[in-house]
């Protein structure tokens, strides 16, 4: 079962969106979402699983890195699954789905092309919800030590004696 809701009717666009199943996360059981290959899973306690799945997709669409798996985006936004955040997040995702519906899609998560989803996000870019999610991702995503190697960034170096003997001047292509 994919996380995006059933379409209301089989418009061409909705048919396409249904067919390609854009969301990479899967809701399993009542309170879990996970990767299709079950490589990771996230339990939600407050948010609806569909809301969390859409939020993860939104996070990827804001800062898309094809080399990063969904688990890093999930880790970046899992803090929104909290009682004090839930109302605003459910409302924000509902607004996102409404904007998608206005563009002829069943839901945000049912929009197949990133560019079309980004166009929807551009339309709500000034909203406090969008800005909160985007701002939170700057640290929530890029300050995860686990993502640094995927960008080549090596992080802490003091404990290894710095780079004096580990290639501080090893550039060879100049």
């Amino acid at each position: 079962m994919t996380s995006h809701p059933r379409t209301r009717g089989l418009t061409r666009r909705a048919l396409l969106s249904h067919a390609v199943a854009t969301v990479a996360t899967v809701t399993v059981g009542a309170n879990f979402i996970c990767a299709p290959d079950a490589a990771w899973a996230l339990e939600v306690t407050v948010l609806k699983p569909e809301t969390m799945a859409t939020l993860i997709l939104m996070a990827r669409d804001i800062y898309p890195h094809d080399r990063l798996g969904d688990e890093y985006y999930a880790a970046a936004v899992k803090g929104y699954d909290a009682a004090e955040e839930a109302e605003a997040v459910e409302a924000g995702i509902a607004a996102l789905d409404a904007a998608a519906a206005g563009a002829g899609y069943a839901a945000y998560a049912a929009v197949p092309w990133e560019a079309d989803r980004v166009a929807i996000l551009r339309g709500m870019e000034a909203s406090p919800f969008f800005q909160k999610v985007r701002g939170g991702l700057v640290t929530g995503l890029y300050n995860q030590k686990e993502v640094w190697p995927l960008f080549g960034y090596e992080g802490e170096s003091y404990s290894k004696g710095g780079y004096i003997k580990r290639g501080f001047d090893d550039i060879a292509w100049l």
Binding site: E156, S157, Y158, G161, G162, Y163, I164, F168
Partner: peptide, 10 residues
């Protein structure tokens, strides 16, 4: 009484 740079960054 201070040592030379170890090219650590940071």
């Amino acid at each position: 009484e201070r040592m030379p740079c170890q090219q650590t960054g940071f």
